[in-house]
Amino acid sequence: MNPTANKKNCTLKFLILTMKHKINAHAYWQKNLRYVVILLSIWFTVSFGFGILLADTLNNIQIGGFPLGFWFAQQGAIYAFVVLIFVYIYLMNRLDKHYTSEN
């Protein structure tokens, strides 16, 4: 192989790699956005939904001594928040690993 062709080949390889990085970065970001949207919908549902907007309706259901709407507002929503963050940590660590191994 002559030097010029080799050089061309290298540039091409480099271009393909950068393209791949860009596509990967894009895919990574899209996936991250999807996780965020799904987790934030749950975040909204347990607090603003069950704890506030639907609280009166849910209060007709009793769990032990708790009216359910009241329980969500003072306990359930907070537990759900903690779980949501740890689920996100797990998902993102998995995604990070996948992304860095591809590069």
């Binding site: 987790l39 607090s47 507002a73 003072q74 929503a77 907070i78 928040f81 949501l84 996100y88 940590i89």
Partner: peptide, 18 residues
């Protein structure tokens, strides 16, 4: 009083995710 309980914890979800 639930506004304080949910309000002062739910913000951490926003912090962690956004």
């Amino acid at each position: 009083g639930s506004v304080f309980l949910m309000g002062w914890t739910g913000g951490y979800v926003l912090l962690a995710l956004l």
